[in-house]
């Protein structure tokens, strides 16, 4: 999702329509993943692609977990209200020791990785044995030519995502479709946008969906 050279997630219109989370569903899928896995006080959680740190703050306050965020965009970090638990790094080179986290969260960000497989391998490395992966992101009904900097243009088929997750040492526990959340945000962006159909790639591209996937790392 890009307009000119500025990606959608760096534009004020996304914050106005999606709120601090900058993604479909706001905290709905964050909470669903945390509730399904029973996040408990003391758990160490890493949010990769943490943006403004909204999920990190949410998980700390709602579940009492020790949550940290990794974000590569300096602009996003500069706009975050609290950077005390956020680190500037890329998702495929995480500055944490192996086996550090009970769970790794990656919300609406994996499709932006230059190499999602390398990212998943890194998530697996920093997750402790028996720990969890929570992914939520766009998927496409078929592979499309990648558009740099566009999450809609880089969305992968769900079968490919499943395969890459399993190839990186995870067992998939659950996959849910939440495409209605994507449509809802795309509709809000259309209404709030300046009239261009290119405001949001999700609105212009057919066959896009949104998923929540939960997986466990083997012992």
């Amino acid at each position: 999702m890009t307009v000119g050279s500025v990606p959608l997630w760096e534009q004020p219109v996304l914050r106005q329509t999606a709120g601090e989370t900058l993604r479909p569903g706001s905290f709905e899928l964050t909470d669903r993943g945390a509730d399904l896995l029973g996040f408990a006080p003391g758990w160490k959680i890493l949010d990769v692609g943490s943006g403004l740190g909204a999920s990190v703050n949410r998980l700390r306050s709602r579940y009492g977990v020790e949550a940290y965020g990794v974000e590569q965009s300096i602009r996003q970090l500069e706009q975050a209200s609290d950077t005390s638990n956020l680190v500037q790094a890329t998702g495929d080179s995480l500055p944490f020791a192996g086996g550090s986290f009970h769970a790794v969260l990656c919300e609406c960000a994996l499709s932006l990785f230059p190499n999602p497989g390398a990212g998943l391998a890194e998530f697996q490395r920093v997750t402790m044995p028996g720990g969890f992966l929570i992914l939520s992101d766009l998927f496409a009904d078929r592979a499309a030519p990648a558009e740099p900097g566009s999450c809609a243009g880089r969305a992968m088929p769900l079968a490919s995502i499943r395969q890459q997750v399993e190839c990186n040492g995870y067992e998939i526990l659950r996959v849910e479709e939440h495409t209605v959340l994507l449509k809802d945000l795309a509709a809000r962006l259309v209404l709030a946008g300046g009239g261009s159909e290119k405001e949001c790639g999700c609105a212009g591209r057919k066959g896009l969906g949104y998923y929540l996937m939960i997986a466990v790392k083997g012992y």
């Binding site: 449509k183 795309a186 509709a187 259309v190 209404l191 159909e197």
Partner: peptide, 13 residues
């Protein structure tokens, strides 16, 4: 006829 129509089509897939 503009944005609302576009939103309806989007929600109707």
């Amino acid at each position: 006829l503009g944005k609302m129509h576009q939103v309806e089509q989007l929600l109707e897939d």
